[in-house]
Computed example of a mutant assay.
Amino acid sequence: MPSFFHKLAFILCLSLLLQACSFFTNETKEDEYVGWTVEQFIAASKLELENENYKKAIVTLEQLDSRYPFGAHSAQTQLNLTFAYYKNGDAEAALASADRFIKTHPRHPDVDYAYYLKALVNFNRELGFIDRYIPSDATQRDSLFTQTSYLNFEELLRRFPYSQYAPDVKQRMVYLKNALARHELHVARFYMGREAYVAAANRTNYILQHYQGTPAVPYALEIQIKAYKILVLHGLADESTEIYTYNYPDGPVLPEADSSDVVVVPFIWSIFAFDR
């Protein structure tokens, strides 16, 4: 039976072998671009982007950026690299690349595009297994990326109100605001189910203060009225009822969410306590 030291020696040898293989592989990749001019890199990366071969485009653009970091092409290279990272699903790399461009070229005429890409990365963040394989309602999960994306778009509009991306940004912000409000509704219902009525009422107050104009408002009022009645806060319940009756005499005007939305089975919410 091999001794401990024999095993250790084998592991070390295997580790060194793997590192050597990796080294030679990287050397081979780099050798592929030996002698390439800026024009060759630009033409090759443009072709890869047009063909939607984003992995190959990333390799070419990274080589261009590292070998020729300065020049008239530099800013566009960084923007293209940010876009390629985004389309390839490399969220962290795309965010870092966008931030780098914003810091390096704050007065560039296309800097609004870097802000736009940064917001899109968070807007389209993958949530892994749940999204790919289980029909679900994204608003029942952590809203961190939704909030971050909303703030990114908000910053873009504040800095560049006349950007060509402004119309699209405004539409996305409406969607995100509705999603954030609906997330708060889920949390309020969660608290109601746990008989945490004060917490539920506080959540509905937050919706009324921060998400006016969203479809979630009348549903928040319904929860709030019920919570106040259970807490024997009749004065507050009457005030909320008056507001609800005045604004929604026939009930909510809009459905809480688009009818095409798929809602995860309620018990999943309770099991995992998605109350953030």
Rank of each mutant, 00 (worst) to 15 (best):
L47F: 11
I243Q: 11
Y197D: 02
V121Y: 09
A20E: 08
L95E: 04
H186Q: 14
H183P: 03
Y191S: 01
F145M: 05
I230R: 02
R158T: 08
D110F: 10
P167V: 07
R159G: 02
F160C: 06
K7F: 12
L64E: 04
L231Y: 07
T104C: 05
S270D: 14
Y86A: 00
L120K: 03
V59R: 07
T146D: 12
P255V: 09
G193F: 15
Y219F: 11
Q147M: 05
E184I: 02
N51T: 05
G251D: 06
D168I: 04
F83V: 02
K87S: 01
F4T: 12
V198T: 03
R67C: 15
V121W: 12
K87P: 00
I58L: 03
K118L: 07
A216W: 10
S66Q: 06
V111S: 04
P106C: 11
I225S: 03
T28G: 12
P218R: 04
M173H: 10
Q224E: 10
L8E: 07
A96L: 14
Y54K: 00
A138K: 09
R125Y: 13
K118E: 11
G235M: 11
P249F: 14
G128V: 14
I243P: 01
A75V: 06
D110I: 10
G128M: 15
R125A: 08
Y116C: 03
R189L: 11
A91V: 09
Y115Q: 04
D65V: 01
E52W: 06
A20C: 09
F129N: 06
D131T: 14
S163E: 13
F24C: 05
E62G: 03
Y133V: 10
F70P: 02
Y219S: 00
R67T: 11
E242R: 08
D31S: 10
A201K: 00
